[in-house]
């Protein structure tokens, strides 16, 4: 194992706010972090080992670990387990790999880099945080499991791929960007969508403001699958034709839901 390694000293009795625990920080053990209602040194909760080389591994993980990789701009964080809320919050670069599941607000307001979560995520994946107007604006998020409600809410850029299902109100008020969902949609997907693209397997679950615009041979698909490994894996390397649903027409939106024809 190389890079810095955080190993929990025991079970956590309160939520742990890992804001500021980033791969390039030499003084990580002395970093003051939130632990329940108080501040604690990170070294009090985790055994810190290894050397600074741009990588940070969190052994074990846990649903109490909030804001892992928040504000990350470079380097790599690997969590060998679950994380709590706000993984990758407002990160602008680097890579975060979560080998378990994540809580709400994963990749919220992400502007660059990549977040890969092997399991499920909670509500508001890539969405705007409370009090914010806009969600994720760039970067790539890959979810191996399913997503909770309001995935991609008010996102305005970047790419989110969900291998599993997406609960109700996915892509609600989506401003721009790309959200791909391989599984089933909850109700009301794309409600209030202004622009942007949804890649879906079926139109079932789309909000009422979407209208069928027919089947098309889209050159754009050929470009996307050649420029994005993630989209190539999702859409298929030979993607070309898709059925296009325009919406949300109820608000004059110019977004689209594309169902790639295989």
């Amino acid at each position: 194992m190389t890079g810095l390694v955080l190993a929990p000293r025991g079970t956590f009795e309160a939520r742990v706010d890992l804001t500021g625990a980033l791969p390039g920080d030499e003084g990580l053990a002395k970093l003051k972090i939130g632990y329940g209602g108080r501040r604690a040194e990170l070294g009090e909760l985790f055994e810190v080992s290894g050397t600074v080389d741009g990588r940070l591994t969190i052994e074990g993980g846990g649903a109490e670990l909030d804001r892992v990789g928040a504000g990350l701009s470079a380097g790599e964080i690997v969590v060998k387990g679950d994380v709590g809320v706000g993984v990758g919050l407002r990160a602008s670069g680097g890579t975060i790999v979560v080998k378990g599941s994540a809580g709400d607000f994963a990749a919220s307001e992400l502007s660059g880099g990549k977040v890969a979560i092997a399991g499920d995520v909670g509500a508001r994946l890539g969405a705007a945080g409370d009090g914010s107007k806009r969600g994720m604006s760039g970067g790539v998020v890959v979810v191996g499991g399913s997503a909770g409600a309001r995935a991609g809410e008010r996102m305005r850029g970047g790419v989110i791929l969900i291998d599993g299902d997406a609960a109700e109100n996915a892509a609600s008020d989506l401003i721009a960007g790309t959200l791909a969902i391989a599984g089933k949609l909850g109700r009301n997907a794309g409600r209030g969508m202004k622009r942007g693209t949804l890649f879906l397997r079926s139109a079932e679950g789309l909000a009422s403001g979407f209208r069928d615009a027919g089947e098309h041979d889209l050159i754009m698909l050929r470009v996307l699958v050649r420029r994005s490994q993630e989209l190539a894996a999702f859409l298929g390397e030979d993607a070309g034709k898709a059925r296009r649903y325009a919406g949300d027409l109820n608000i004059g939106g110019k977004g689209e839901a594309l169902i790639v024809i295989r």
Binding site: T178, V223, L231, E256
Partner: peptide, 19 residues
């Protein structure tokens, strides 16, 4: 419509033939 993937932006301009 613009699509920004892999830090490169492409444009899709609707035309009578397609895009």
């Amino acid at each position: 419509i613009s699509k920004n993937v892999d830090d490169r932006r492409i444009w899709r301009v609707p035309v009578m033939e397609g895009e």
